[in-house]
Design a protein around this nucleic acid. Sequence first.
DNA 1: AGACGCTTGTGAACGTGTGCACAAAGTTGC
DNA 2: GCAACTTTGTGCACACGTTCACAAGCGTCT
Lengths: 224, 224
Amino acid sequence: MPEATVARLPLYLRALTTLAERGVATVSSEELAASAGVNSAKLRKDLSYLGSYGTRGVGYEVDFLRHQITREIGLTQDWAVVIVGIGNLGHALANYGGFASRGFRIAALVDADLSRVGEEVAGLKVRHADELEQIVQDLGIAIGVVATPARAAQLVCDRLVAAGVTSILNFAPAIVQVPEGVDLRKVDLSTELQILAYHEQRKNGAALALTAEQAAELAEAVNG
Amino acid sequence: MPEATVARLPLYLRALTTLAERGVATVSSEELAASAGVNSAKLRKDLSYLGSYGTRGVGYEVDFLRHQITREIGLTQDWAVVIVGIGNLGHALANYGGFASRGFRIAALVDADLSRVGEEVAGLKVRHADELEQIVQDLGIAIGVVATPARAAQLVCDRLVAAGVTSILNFAPAIVQVPEGVDLRKVDLSTELQILAYHEQRKNGAALALTAEQAAELAEAVNG
DNA sequence: AGACGCTTGTGAACGTGTGCACAAAGTTGC
DNA sequence: GCAACTTTGTGCACACGTTCACAAGCGTCT
């Protein structure tokens, strides 16, 4: 399955859940594509990788399709997750309700700062970083979330990998390297803003250019 | 400039900043690519869109290149940002130090919940959502960050756009539609985890298949 | 039963992104 | 000044992703 398709499946899943909550039983690729914000041909091609779950002339059965995507992504089992770094962001992640409902269970919170250890966050006691390996092994954790400062990120990832974690979601603004076989995704707040800033700047430039053009037209109209 | 290149410029900028802090004056495409975690040919092609800023046989001057990228992204000016939704995530974003150092200034915090209005977060008083339009216009805000619950996201985006915001970074787990000309990027925590889960599941599947194969080999060894 | 209308699933064309490989261009050493 | 070495910038081939367009299939209505 193409990586681009995998990245969109959660989007479809969310759209389907919304439709299911509204009591919609079947949906066409056109409608579903619209509510997911993608092209309908792309949606159909994406869904075709799962199998032929649609009915020509009718569309897709919402609940059935939802179940198929859930199964394909692997959300029928629940995934134990450890969050490393319980600062502002770690707190926010720990308290984020969206995980539990989507097959993820926050199994442990870890921090290197002794003043945070023992504190209760989202119903879990924060444990010390020294216990990280033990926790990962005892709880059979495969997915780690890194929300530490940038300077700690590489070390934390190394330790997670050494303890047996094979998927890492990194929020730290740092470039970390992981060995082959370990999946690393990163979410970088300032990178996202910088991309927006680039386009914003070009928009303003375009606006100015347009104004200049309009000015030229105006000049021509006046002089011509 | 290709979109894929734009998305990598912040990465290079970060790598260059790290190098500059370490006192490195010049860097080859090979070294810079390694620290940014990309292919060196790709890096060179990306940088070539900015102009011919390298010296053959030597490499790139760190400070100079850093400045060029900063200018290209539009980080020489500072961008006023409003954060809407001061829950756990909004708090974390408001307190995130990485913005100020990268040309972004959090100019206002807004929330619909009256119990949060007036609270001081990261040195700013939280203001009420009713004031949103006024704030955007008064402060000349072009970039909005949405950290509200999913159900409020579309309305908040509509109001931001109506008030003149042309770039939105959406953290709410909802699919929002914006008119042409407005840039929308989204950061979705559970989507990222779901993508990891998909690969994790496949890894386990592969591991199980291998075990089955090993079992077959073992059976053959025993029986043969 | 057959014709009609609607929607899926997919072949094919197109566009974008990636990476190799090398010529061009600079530096260093003698 | 020239040869040897290093590194950039880029042409080219390939892989990946997207979109169009339409045949195939299903349901409905007469």
